[in-house]
Nucleic acid binder design. Structure first.
Lengths: 197, 197
DNA sequence: GACACGAACGAACGGTCGTTCCATTTTGTC
DNA sequence: GACAAAATGGAACGACCGTTCGTTCGTGTC
């Protein structure tokens, strides 16, 4: 890895955190450069434009999410355990960022939902992949006989997403100390309704 | 209502829409003025600062939300019907804004969750009131015998919020044509689990 | 007709934005 | 150690930011 790639990675690492805090549009090259002790132009030279920077931030965040959530979840046994693992790692992922910043993907989802362009395309692709991954894990749980065989895996993914959104809102904006507890209750109810009766 | 109050109301009406699109921070006085065919300084004169404008936008949006969702829901009979009415009006509220912009409150929730100040305070108060209103409606439904008497109304409010968040994400970012259908399924499941068995 | 008033304007302020250009320093290769 | 390439810095660009200031316009009151 050359020196350039190295600094580029350092920039993106810091930028993913900052973007989660102030948004992809709220990011400024100048502030980023100051944080990292380099010049605006020196930092900018690593990216063709701010838009390209935003896309690369989303790519870097996707890699981080994969390492922190998807890969560990895949180490859990197929079926119900893997769903639980996925949920727990997802919560961990948010928890790590809770005190400092929010979730970049949720922030970007709001920011980009009516702003067409490569950044939006990148985010939509990532979110689609993620939701489909959840659904595929649920589908496997059906095959294993852990979940109802008339379950709609996509519906479960959709609702699980809502459970996480509510958690983010409760813990980040409302500072609700019972947010985690409520989220586990919602998840339990989701799984209970999905299990064979 | 004097001329000044009239213009101020016009500005806020337009600004609430714009803020839902580009965020409270993404708003600019200049763009707002151009949209309304007036000068920057003329528009700015109605507000002490941009921060004050943001607070007043949130106040105006709260009034709109009350008129569009809370008041109509209160016209439905106590208990289960009122919960359903509340949900339907909430969906309508989002649907009206779906094609054009997103939900200002969800956008602001992400934007302000780590930016202390009067705007954040205003939003937190509004969200707390709204969640407590949902909980109180659910509590009344318990009293009426429509819902399980061991139901936690606050938990129901929390989970209903998640259902709406998932809808917003699915319809706004993902452009999922089945978003509404999935949301009704999630709501049905929420109510089913809350009813006496 | 003189006056006061709120409302809106135009110009300008200092600052920051993303971006460009070019010189300089650092790195990697023979 | 020479030399090309890559990486970074410094200065500047035009555009726009929120905000301030003094002025002008229009309206209603005495």
């Amino acid at each position: 890895m050359s020196k350039g790639d190295d600094t580029r990675a350092t920039i993106l690492d810091h930028a993913t955190r900052e973007a989660a805090r102030v948004g992809l549009e709220g990011l400024t090259i100048g502030a980023l450069a100051k944080d990292l002790g380099m010049s605006k132009s020196g930092l900018f030279a690593h990216f063709a434009s701010k838009e390209a920077l935003q896309v690369q931030i989303l790519e870097a965040a996707t890699d981080q999410f994969t390492d922190a959530v998807i890969r560990p979840a895949l180490r859990a046994p197929r079926g119900l355990p893997r769903i639980v693992a996925l949920f727990e790692r997802w919560l961990d992922y948010l928890e790590v960022r809770r005190a400092e910043v929010g979730c970049l993907f949720l922030a970007a989802a709001i920011e980009l939902d009516d702003r067409p362009g490569p950044a939006r395309d990148q985010l939509v692709a990532q979110q689609r992949d993620w939701l489909e991954f959840i659904a595929s894990v649920a589908r496997a749980a059906v095959t294993e006989g852990h979940l109802r065989d008339d379950l709609d895996p996509t519906q479960l993914a959709h609702e699980l997403f809502g459970v996480i959104c509510a958690y983010h809102h409760a813990t980040r904006l409302m500072r609700d100390p019972r947010a985690l507890e409520r989220t586990r209750l919602a998840f339990d109810r989701l799984l209970r309704d999905a299990q064979p009766r």
